[in-house]
Each structure stands twice: as C-alpha cells, then as structure tokens.
Design a protein around this nucleic acid. Structure first.
Length: 989
RNA sequence: GGGCCGUUAGCUCAGUUGGUAGAGCGUCUCGUUUACACCGAGAAUGUCGGCGGUUCGAGUCCGUCACGGCCCACCA
C-alpha cells in the first residue's frame, strides 16, 4: 500500500501512544543494557488541578528528549511521573465548584466532608493533566505515577517533620506573618508578589500631649539651613495606610533629626483612640522620607514590628483574619485608650472602608493635613491577588538558615551543577539571605501537621491559687515536644505510623503508657472540646487532681503544611522513602532536574535543603533551568491575562511532533521563547519533508530485501560515501548538543542535515544513481541514511519517526527501543567530502547564473569546459550524471574558447561556458559578472591587507594564516577567470 | 535601592576558546522536472544599540551610556 502524501498525526499519534503505553516502553529499566548505569528524572509534578499549558509542554518535551535519548543509548532510565496536591490552588478550585453547584460551603460542611469532596474531585478530574502529558508523547513510567498526598508520602512528610522538629530545625512561634485575608491563611515570603497600585500618601497630624508646642522649620536656604519657622502643637506623620493608625503605639524619629530631637520621650495623643503614645528615637526613621516622623504600628507592619521590639512599644492588633477592623472586646486595643463613639463604630469595617472612614473623620476633625496621590508597590497574595496583611499569629517555621549550608556547598563544589550558570547566582543569593520558612497554612487540603496539643495538667499549672477555673489559663504544649509523652512510645516518638496514631486517638479511652500509667487519652476536636472533655471527666470520675489519673484530652493542630514541604520531598518520596526500596538505591540521587526558573526558590532550593538534611545526599546531579514560554509581547502566559496558547489546540492543529520540535528548536539556554504558530507550521512541514523523502525511497524499493542495517553499507559512489559521512557528522553534533543541554542546537543540526543535506541533495543525487550501475548500493545507502534520520530524530519527534519506522523496513522492534548509533568521524570520507563540495558548488553557480539570466527552467543547455584541472576533470566525470541532471545540462564537451554569447561559470580548477547565443542579454551577463567580481575583489582586498601586515603573520595562529593564504589564492584564481570572461564579452559586444 | 539578562536581516532568534556574520519565517522573481506546493530554484536585506578602550584583528574581551525586560528588597 503506497504511503499517503502527508503524515496523519491525529490518527497515528493516538495509535502509537497506545502502543507505547500498553507496551510499557517507559518502564524503569526498559531497553537497559546489562550493567547499565541509571539515568533518572523526576517530573516536576504539575498541580492536580492543572491542565497542560505551554510551560508544561516545553518542560516535558525536554525531559522526554533526555529520557528517550538515554533509553536508546541503553541506560537504565526512570522518568517518574506524578502530580502535586497543591494546597491552596486545589482547595480554591473545589470551593469554587461547590459554589457553582449551590452546595454547602466548606465551613458549612466541615473539614471531613470537605476533604472527601476534594478527594472525589481529584478522582474525577485529577487525571486530566496526566492524559495530556501522554498526548505530548511523554514516555514516563506510567505505572509509577505518584501523588504528594498518597502512598508513602504522608509517612515521609511526618517522618521529616518529626525529625526536623526533634533537631530543633522546626519550631513554632508567634510572629508577624504574611497573612492572606482572602484565604485566611499565612503564606510564605515567596508567595507574596509586589504589585504597583494607585495609592496615596496621607499626612496626618497627631496632637502633642500635655499641651506641648514647638517651633518647626518650614523654609530653607540653599544650604539647607532653616529660614522660617512655625509653631506647632502637633506632630505630622505620613502614611499610605491610614487605617492602621488605630493600632499605632508610637512615633519614631531619627535620633539625629534636629527637627524632632527635642520631642523624643514626649507623647502624642492618638486621634479617635485617645491613647497616649510615645515619640521614640530609631534609625529606621528616615529624615528624608515623608515628614521624617513615622507612625509605628507593630501589629501591622514588618518594619514597625522591628522598631516596636527595639523601642519597647506595645503591640495592638486591630484586624481580624479577614482584615476587618476589630475593636469591640479587643483588650489590647481598649487598654489605655478612650476611643470615641465614631471610632468604635468602625468595628467590623473592612480595612478599605475603615480607611475611608478615618480620612473622613480626620478631615472633619481637622487632623488631615493633606493627601498626595502616588503609585507604590503593595504586597499581594500570589493566588488570591488581594493585599496581604501582616498579622501576628502562631505559626510553624523551618529554621532554614540552619539547613541551608549543604545546599549551598553542593552547588559551590560542583556536586550539583545548575545550568545555565547564571541561575546558580540567583540560587546562591537567595539561599545566603534565607529567612525562616513559614510552613503552616490555615487550610484543610494538605498534610495536617503531625502535632497534638494537650492541656497542661502538671500540678503547678493545674492547681490555681485563686481557686477558680484553672483550665482557662492552662498553657498548651506539644506532645511531640514533651519528653514525658514521647520517649516511651514509638508511636508518639516517631509518629511515622500515621494510621496507628489516629487509631489510638479515636479509641475513646486508650491506655496511655508510662509515665502516665493511669491516664486515659482521648482526642478532642479542638481546644474548647478538650477543656469540656476534661471538665466532664473530672465530674464523671470524680478524680483527684493527680495528673497521672486523669483522662487526658488532646487535639491536633488543625493547620496543614505548605504544599512545598511535601513536594520538597519529591525525589525520595516518589522512590518509596522512608521505605528502604531498591528504587531508592538505584535511582537516587537523580540525574537531571528539568525545571523553570520561576520555581528555583519554591522548589529546587527546598528540595536541595530537604534531601540533604534527610538523606545527606544531593537530590540531583544537574539542574537544567529553562526559560518561560511567553506570548508575543514577552508576557508570561496566564489565564488572567487571556494570552494563553493551549498546547493541546496546537497538537490538534499541527501534531505533537511539530509542537515538540518547535519548543526544542527554541530552547536556547536561558532565554525566553516567544511562540508563534508560523514557526510550528514550519516544523510541521519539516516532518512532512522527511515523510516524503521516505515515501520516495519506499517507492523506489529502497528497503526491499534486507533487514535494518546497523552499519552503513560499503559504498563506492561519491554521493553515497559523502552522505554517510554527513550522517556521521550529524550524529556527533546531536550527541554533543544534547550532552550540553543545547536542545536548540540538536534540533538545528537535525533540521539542517535532514532537509539541507538528505532531501535537498542526496535524494536528488540518488535519482540518476538509481538508473545506473550503483543502484544497489545507493538503495542500501539511502535505506541506512533514512533509518538514521528516524533514529536521530526520534527523541524530538517520536510519533512520526515511530510511524515511519513501522511503515518502511523490516523491523525487529519499535523505534523507541532501537539502539542509538555510535559511529563518528571514521565514516567521513575527506575525498568524497571535497568532491561533493565542488559538485554542489558548481551546481549552485550554474543554477544561479541561469536564473539571473532568465534562462527558462525547462531548457537544457550544452556546457563547454574551457579548462579542467585533473582533479576537476575526475570530479566531473565521476558525478556527470548528477550535475547534468541538477543543473539541467544536456551535454558537456571541451572547447578552447567560449563561443559568442555564453554564460561563464568559474569553479575551483575549472572554467565553464554555457553557450546561449541569441538568448542571453550580453549587458546583463556583463553586469552579473562585474558584480561577482566586485564581491571577490572586496574579499581579496581584505585578505591581502591582513597578509601584508607583518604583525598578523607574527601573532595570528598558523592555521589562520594558512587559511587566509589559501583563500586568497582561490579567490584570486576565480577573479581571474571572471576577468577573462568579462574581456571575452567585451570583444563580442 | 541591590542583582541578573537582553539590544545582530522586516519578524523570531543562533553565533562555544577574538579571525571579518548565519538560520527559520516573511518579502520579491521564476517554476507541475521519478518524494514533497506543508514543495523546488534563485534573489534582496545588517553602521551586530551608542561611545571609548585592549588587539595585527572585536558581534565576541574591558569600561561607560541609552533603551527594554526579569528577580530580590521596599506599603512613612
């Protein structure tokens, strides 16, 4: 059955994909040679919520190329697939779904029911992106698909948390954190992005306490000395966030600021709140900024927090978790304050509404000095896109500064290479300035923190001298922290057996081991429930206050861990850790990590730190950092911007191979790539080109009669010897490019070879050869060459090559399992190389001359050789059929001089004439020759100038000088022939 | 404010130790020759962002400026 004219990507891709997946070609170790070394890549796990975008397509194409290439080379390859549970993102998606279907909200249904919904949702649509990866052709080991919330991951997370906790590397603390008021959770520094907004600087006047007034400079001379003063009974501050004034607890001025130095230690009366707050001296206050006096709100600003700590200022939090003003019942706020009714009326207002209200009141009451519009950056949650609010809360942190050392060293000493190198600088900069990592999230979807709290029932804490309800005042502590609990019971101690822990707690009155021999432990939902349970137990059992005989209620920390905490364990977690698995021994540390620069901090750095902390080993040998796929304006593609090109649409339109080849060809290291459909169409055409070359070969029975040839056939025809050498060059180039992660160079080498050498020249050369005595060797050569094209292209364009492989020869196995060639320069025949360069050059010149002279394409000419060196004569004779066909020459004969009205062609060692009496325009031919001569002369002048310069001869490398000499000679010879031709034309004219 | 990167043909971009600039797409002309019009043949197009320096020689190395972009920090 003859081949179709084009490759039917849509039909073939589905069929071939199924063949690969059913045949488990991605299985770890598939195609491995005996004693093979391991080559492993962990996929950067996409969010389960996700669907494939261009970034994924790019990232996974590169990984697939590396994997297929190594697999064909006989390595024991593992490409580990999987997805990430993506805490906030997934919870957000499921909540949105619930809202759409009018279902009860997350809070209405409760934690357990909601989590059930999320799992349901995951089961239903979590496989989307995995299926999309399969459409791309990703040859992962699909049987090993992992998920950061399943399998051994919970155990791994707990084990790491507990171990780091016991080493003091994880701690809990009350700190100011980045709070996202939309999701009502803390987020890490990395999840904050600065966004420029239209804001305003508001100048507020706070009256000085005790009727104080002072003289304030208002005009200055050229030297900056004050020339005019006014009397003020207030201190003016400037702020972009007037609403935080409710929580102001001080004013800071610079100690050296003459304007205010005399006020340090005095107080102002905070408007509305009527609280006396001190004026303090602190270097943070910048005399050049604002008014030089800065209001300090320790509870709502990171800098102010630091100032407050240094100056001993109070912390007054005036916002709740939704960033609404909270005043009623706010003991911190009310203490020392005498708020006006208008002030208290702001209770419950959103922070922005409160801002308006405060400005209204300030205007009305005369303490608003003025407002200047201003654009300034404001931190926003990267998911919620709302302004984050610094909030004082209890959170868990990893003391990253203490585990960062090995992660820095591993890259510094070359244990792990980061490519391109400049990204290593970014990596170092961040790690060397690392801050504690806030890992607790006030979410439900994620790994719940493996920490239980209990009421402190130690006698001193329990017995209350006042005799009233002691339980309200008990402090909480972690079970994991308390030696009394966790040293004797392995479950408590390690808490690796998560299921076991849960069972213990749900078992209502499970006996607790030593030293609380007679205590009964019971898990309560939260702290209030625990208090109630204890009170009930005290009443029911009429127990004494001896803690060893109590029912002991505990509750689990409700927070979950930052998603990146578990994905930070991806390399070992996917290999079965904490189990001691053969895979872990075989494939860890992994070979390469292919990832985008946008998650160097989020993920790469944390994997480095965590794997090194847990395993004492680097997680990967090489990190290849690639650029982002951007839209044509260079903007990051994002749903919210609506500039997304969907890779699946592109695959539908052009085929997966075209998309893959395009991304590969554009993957120059460290540069953004801007994708256009035209480019993809161009590479789709490239596939078709190869397809048709194979179709031509198939029509000529090239593959008939023999199985796949491992080695090139012994060839005698120059063209065959030449193309075999070109194939070897291509293989060497591709391997060198891939070894250096220069995917673009690999693609370009193959494009140039397949199209520029095989299709443009070799297929054309073969046509006359098929009719001659070299037909058999030419068929064998072409079969081998095209096979090599398929093999070398397969990592980049797997579908079309697999299809061609099946369509053309007698194949023992799938192309995906076919061995990668190892031949090299030994296949290059220098003589054939030189000769074919001469032949192609001559053909180019004849074609160019013909077109420029408007010789009809179909007209075959008789060519005269005016002079032929022995080499040129031999080259001509050996390749006459080729040249005649491609240059459309009828006959060649020798002549002493060119006839009247002929085109002149100069080649190395030869000079030809194409008689065109009556056809050519002599003036035009003259112009053509003059132009060619001018170009040559320009080159000759340049070469002479260099060679005449003694310093050049003295300092340049010998090869360079020799090359220049040879060039000069060749150009001079050519110019001579053209001059002769011009002279001849002149005679005729 | 700190750092990183980019500026090469109309467009998108290559150009690895300094040796005299390339590819794809687009444009123009011609064309149904034993595969391919998703094609073939040919042609045009660059003060390699500006200035200065090192060198026999600079797109390539150094300095500086301009423009563009990114990352980090910063809500007075």
């Amino acid at each position: 059955m003859p081949m179709e004219k084009t490759f039917n990507a849509a039909e073939a891709e589905a069929r071939i994909s199924k063949q690969w997946i059913d045949g488990k070609v991605g299985r770890a170790g598939a195609n491995a040679r005996p004693g093979a070394t391991a080559f492993s890549i962990m996929i950067p796990p996409p969010n389960v919520t996700g669907s494939l975008h261009m970034g994924h397509a790019f990232n996974n194409t590169l990984q697939d190329i590396l994997i297929r290439w190594h697999r064909m080379r006989g390595f024991d390859t593992l490409w580990q697939p999987g997805t990430d549970h993506a805490g906030i993102a997934t919870q957000m998606v499921v909540e949105r779904e619930l809202a759409k279907t009018q279902a009860p909200s997350r809070r209405e249904m409760g934690r357990e029911a909601f989590l059930e919904k999320v799992w349901e949702w995951k089961a239903q649509s979590g496989g989307t992106i995995i299926n999309q990866l399969k459409r791309l052709g990703a040859s992962c080991d699909w049987d090993r698909e992992a998920f950061t919330m399943s399998g051994n991951f919970p155990a791994a997370v707990i084990k790491v948390f507990v171990e780091l906790y016991h080493k003091g590397l994880i701690f809990r603390g009350k700190r100011l954190v980045n709070w996202d008021p939309h999701f009502e959770t803390a987020i890490s520094d990395l999840e904050v992005e600065q966004i420029e907004v239209n804001g305003a600087m508001h100048r507020l006047r706070y009256n000085l306490a005790d009727g104080l007034n002072y003289s304030h400079p208002v005009a200055f001379d050229d030297d900056g000395n004050p020339t005019a003063f006014e009397t003020r009974d207030y201190l003016m501050v400037a702020t972009t966030r007037p609403e935080t004034m409710l929580g102001d607890t001080g004013i800071a001025v610079h100690p050296s600021d003459a304007r205010y130095a005399h006020l340090i230690g005095r107080e102002v009366i905070l408007p509305l709140v009527s609280r006396r707050i001190p004026i303090v001296a602190d270097d943070y206050a910048d005399p050049a900024k604002g008014t030089g006096a800065v209001k300090i709100t320790p509870a709502h600003d990171f800098n102010d927090w630091a100032v407050g700590a240094r100056c001993g200022l109070r912390v007054v939090n005036v916002m709740d978790t939704k960033a609404a003003i909270t005043l009623e019942g706010n003991a911190d706020f009310l203490e020392g304050a005498a708020p006006s009714p208008e002030c208290m009326a702001m209770h419950g207002l959103d922070r922005y509404a409160a801002r308006k209200e405060i400005l209204r009141l300030a205007e009305e009451q005369g303490w608003l000095d003025g407002i200047d519009a201003e654009r300034h950056p404001v931190p926003h949650g990267d998911r919620s896109k709302v302004a984050i609010e610094p909030l004082l809360t209890d959170q868990w942190f990893v003391d990253t500064a203490r585990i960062v050392g090995p992660a820095i060293d591993a890259v510094k000493n070359g244990d792990t290479a980061i490519l391109p190198e400049r990204d290593a600088k970014v990596y170092f900069h961040w790690l060397e300035n690392i801050e504690p990592w806030c890992i607790s999230r006030q979410l439900w979807w994620g790994h719940q923190i493996p920490v239980w709290y209990g009421l402190d029932l130690r006698p001193a804490g329990f017995r209350d001298d006042e005799g009233d309800n002691a339980l309200d005042e008990t402090e909480i502590f972690t079970l994991l922290a308390d030696g009394a609990f966790n040293q004797t019971d392995p479950v408590w101690h390690c808490a690796t057996d998560f299921e076991g822990v849960a069972e213990r707690f749900t078992d209502d009155l499970a006996p607790m081991p030593m030293p609380l021999a007679h205590a009964r432990i019971v898990e309560a939902a939260d702290r209030p429930a625990a208090v109630e349970a204890l009170a009930r137990a005290l009443a029911d059992y009429n127990l004494t206050q001896d803690p060893t005989h109590l029912v002991y209620p505990v509750w689990r920390d409700p927070d979950v861990l930052d998603t990146w905490f578990s994905s930070g364990l991806w390399p070992i977690g996917t290999l079965g850790w904490p189990g001691d698995t053969p895979e872990l021994h075989r494939y860890f540390p992994t070979s390469v990590l292919v990832t985008g620069f946008d998650i160097i901090f989020f993920w790469v750095a944390r994997m480095m730190m965590m794997q090194l902390a847990v395993m004492g080993q680097k997680p990967f040998s090489t990190v290849y950092v690639h650029a982002l796929v951007r839209d044509e304006k260079g903007k990051k593609m994002s749903k919210s911007l609506g500039n997304v090109l969907d890779p699946l649409d592109l695959i539908d339109e052009f085929g997966a191979d075209a998309v893959r080849f395009t991304l590969t060809a554009m993957a120059a290291m460290g540069r953004d790539l801007k994708l256009s459909k035209e480019r993809i169409a161009g590479y789709r055409n490239f596939g078709t080109k190869l397809w048709n070359a194979c179709r031509f070969a198939e029509m000529n029975g090239v593959w008939e009669g023999h199985a796949t040839q491992a080695a090139p056939p012994a060839a005698t025809a120059t063209a065959n010897r030449w193309i075999i050498g070109e194939t070897a060059k291509a293989r060497v180039e591709v391997d060198a490019a891939l070894a250096g992660f220069r995917f673009d160079q690999a693609a370009q080498a193959l494009h140039g070879f397949v199209w520029g050498k095989v299709c443009d020249w070799y297929v054309e050369f073969a046509k006359p050869l098929f009719d001659g005595e070299k037909a058999a060797e030419t068929r064998a050569t072409m079969a081998w060459v095209l096979d090599q094209c398929m093999i070398l292209l397969h990592p980049i364009t797997p579908f079309i090559t697999e299809e061609l492989w099946a369509t053309t020869g007698r194949r023992e196995k799938l192309l995906v399992h076919t061995g990668w060639p190892e031949y090299g320069p030994e296949l290059i025949d220098p003589e054939a190389d030189r000769e074919m360069t001469w032949v192609t050059g001559l053909i180019d010149d004849i074609r160019s001359a013909r077109t420029q002279m408007h010789v009809p394409v179909g007209l075959k000419l008789d060519m005269l050789a005016l002079s032929l060196s022995p080499e040129a004569r031999a080259a001509w004779e050996r390749n006459a059929a080729l040249i005649r066909r491609l240059a459309r020459i009828e006959t060649l004969s020798e002549a002493e001089i060119a006839p009247k009205g002929a085109l002149s062609i100069a080649a190395e060692g030869a000079s030809f004439a194409l008689p065109l009496d009556g056809i050519i325009d002599i003036a035009a031919e003259q112009a053509r020759l003059v132009k060619a001569l001018e170009k040559l002369e320009k080159e000759i002048t340049g070469l002479r100038a260099r060679l005449d310069n003694p310093k050049f001869i003295a300092s340049a490398k010998e090869e360079v000088v020799d090359e220049a000499r040879a060039n000069l000679e060749a150009r001079t010879e050519e110019a001579g022939m053209i001059r002769t031709a011009i002279a001849r034309l002149a005679e005729i004219a």
